[in-house]
Design a protein around this nucleic acid. Structure first.
Lengths: 420, 420
DNA sequence: AGGCTTGATTCATGGCATAAATCGTGGTGT
DNA sequence: ACACCACGATTTATGCCATGAATCAAGCCT
């Protein structure tokens, strides 16, 4: 029910987008296969593909013989047509990575963050420095960089300035997009890290092929990325999927967000360790940094540890059941470092706990899997942001230069027609 | 990222749909206003509107004078172009209603249901009988009935057969759509009652103007209807929005679904009354049917009643907060007979409880309102199903007859051009 | 070599939205 | 009163688009 017109150009762009998306995700493909699955006529496929080959974004990649006919030529997105840069602003470091269009990492840069609440200007400087560094390191033409995707841990407004609210970084209304754009001509995209990691899992990981999925991320904090009908669900102001602070135990444990009984207070790594320490009152508990302490808890042979972990699985199951009931996904993908650690050992129990708390039918229609890309894929996920835009637009739109040349009348023709 | 082509016809259909939708929802409108808000050229607006006037679906409705120029002609959807029939399959009765395209009710039929778990064949017979009855009662041409929408309380598969799973009716895999289609030529649409009521609220009630909203329905059971970016969110198998059975008190009260601690067990009318009776142990409690007992509880001056209601508001707030966090709507609309009863008295407290349990930012971006249509709007909601289809298609698609006449060459032209 | 099969491209056609030009319809000024 | 003006609606000429039919291209078989 969108109140927006459709023009002839939209049609062509939409069809280019469909073809390019399919070639990129499932390629190499022949023109014939493209025609089959998109329902476009072979003539149009040829026409559009020819245009894209002319622009260099698509290229031929070998051929497959057919029994007694002309062999089909396979098509793929040219890996070197352009490059994508993705960055992950974590709590301890800024990581920047450069990829070609085949999503092969070509260069990497990393900058530690010292302060617990880093200065936005410093982070922006790191990001811009990293952008330049990876371009130089990979030795690619800066003009061939199609976009710079940045993932942060808070919520990001979908405005031109890309205003960031990130509790864990202590950021409140930081216009990161505007700050970065001031320092580079490369198109900048900023989004939430959970959402970009979810996109990466959908394209390259455990979400492949699903149209409705929820990527549930359990780390120190808890978040989720919801994909509905193939596109990320954002809600009115892009903060949809705040799964960690849904109430699971009314009046229960105090969460760091200030409320009582949040899922995060029970299943987030911090909450789990806290519960373990309370259960262990008086006796020695785990120590060290959060991640190693969590590993220690998982390996601990004590009855207390087993009990805490068992309860954790129960709470997690109830939390996943909430997602299953409300979003009715065909797949739930469990990730995040703590989620993966729990899932690798307790996946059957987690499934069982979810079954116990979810409605029978939606549960039967879903499957619960583990993330395949690991938590380091956030930078790659960020790089999917410019890629998604490229696919939506069906390639790089013709710029002002091309438009000028087409509006100027062809100089050769007029005299010739007058001469006749 | 849909892998589907776009053709020239799609464009025209999309534009007709945009215009028709806008005329229907916000009409009467002038051609000029239509051009402004849709970004279509005035020429195209004229062209498309002219076509629709020719078909009879749009008509001129007066004009508005402009200071010193030709007056603008206003356009509206012709109320008598077609008729919509909606039906509500409730637990105690089947209600069928006929509307014109201005959504004015023209006829009504009602059939009581005796059994607690009615036979699907009986219900289908009632529905078909009601369909014929309202058509006759209103005295409209049966061929002018554009569709028959049926709302049921369970989940409905989005297949041709429209298979229904309804726990409260005791139905398990009833192909209601197929059963109805066998008895009528009118296009049949079957969907969940909460979803259709939500659609009605979005178009005519408290949801007007919102693109992201959640309609939260609290009655004997609990459900929700999620609208994302203007369209209903369904999930992979159309059962999204099962809000009632999200865990709110881990390990808490037994719910009628069999699980522990569901929201429905605390906030559903049955759960509330049950909690009141428990709190009142030994002393006289409320009686009668559920709705009057609930009213009695609301009016009761005792401290116990106040306490139970206060707790209910708290649980409800936590439940609404879950919706706010996960869906990030711009509006939450509270309805259902119990929800309205609670909301009319405790809306400020409900808002407060929600604020206590939701994240600050998503809560600040949303508003919590009450349904405006009342629980009897379910049949009207069901009638929105064929209307939504009509708007999506931009009117009634040209049938086989029209197609034949257009492929036959116009007989007058060829001789004339040859004569010159 | 000639036929055959199948893939890819070209060509003619009709549908579409659009800008520009034209037509309608009322008010206004001298 | 009549020309003029302002503004809405329609018509016309144009260019873009996907499509089916026809044509071209490339391999295999006998």
């Amino acid at each position: 029910m969108d109140a927006r017109r459709t023009t002839v150009r939209d049609m062509r762009r939409a069809n280019r987008s469909v073809l390019l998306t399919r070639i990129w995700l499932d390629g190499p493909l022949s023109r014939h296969e493209l025609g089959q699955t998109t329902a476009l006529s072979l003539a149009s496929v040829s026409n559009l593909v020819g245009e894209m080959i002319g622009e260099g974004i698509v290229e031929e990649a070998g051929s497959v013989e057919s029994d007694g006919g002309r062999p089909r030529v396979l098509l793929r997105v040219a890996p070197g047509y352009g490059y994508l840069v993705g960055a992950d602003v974590g709590e301890t470091r800024v990581q920047v990575e450069l990829f070609d269009l085949a999503m092969t990492a070509l260069a990497k840069a990393e900058y530690p963050i010292a302060a617990a609440e880093p200065d936005p200007d410093d982070v922006a400087a790191h990001l811009l420095h990293g952008l330049r560094a990876v371009i130089e390191q990979a030795g690619v033409d800066p003009g061939a960089v199609l976009g710079f995707g940045v993932a942060v841990s808070g919520t990001v407004e979908r405005t031109a300035d890309a205003v960031v609210h990130a509790q864990t970084l202590g950021w409140e209304g930081v216009p990161l997009g505007a700050m970065l754009r001031a320092g580079t001509d490369v198109p900048v995209h900023v989004d939430n890290g959970a959402k970009t990691l979810g996109q990466a899992e959908m394209w390259f990981g455990a979400g492949r092929g699903a149209r409705h999925a929820v990527i549930a991320l359990v780390g120190s904090g808890i978040g989720a990325s919801v994909v509905a009908d193939g596109v990320g669900y954002r809600g009115a102001h892009s903060s949809a999927g705040e799964w960690g602070h849904t109430t699971i135990v009314y009046g229960g444990r105090r969460c760091r967000c200030g409320n009582l009984g949040c899922l995060e207070a029970y299943v987030g790594a911090e909450g789990v360790l806290d519960r373990f320490r309370q259960a262990n009152r008086g006796r020695p508990a785990v120590g060290g940094d959060e991640e190693s302490a969590f590993g220690e808890l998982l390996r601990s042979p004590t009855r207390t540890a087993a009990k805490v972990l068992d309860e954790t699985v129960g709470y997690l199951g109830a939390g996943v059941a909430t997602l299953v009931n409300l979003f009715n996904p065909e797949r739930v993908v469990l990730g995040g470092w703590a989620g993966l650690a729990l899932g690798e050992r307790f996946l059957p129990q987690i499934r069982e706990a979810t079954a116990r708390h979810a409605l029978r039918q939606p549960y039967a229609q879903t499957s619960i899997e583990l993330c395949q890309l690991g938590p380091d894929a956030v930078a790659m996920g960020a790089a999917t942001l410019p890629m998604a835009r490229l696919l939506r637009q069906g390639g790089v739109p013709r710029g002002a230069v091309a438009r000028v040349t087409t509006t100027v009348p062809p100089p050769a023709r007029r005299p010739r027609s007058r001469a006749r």
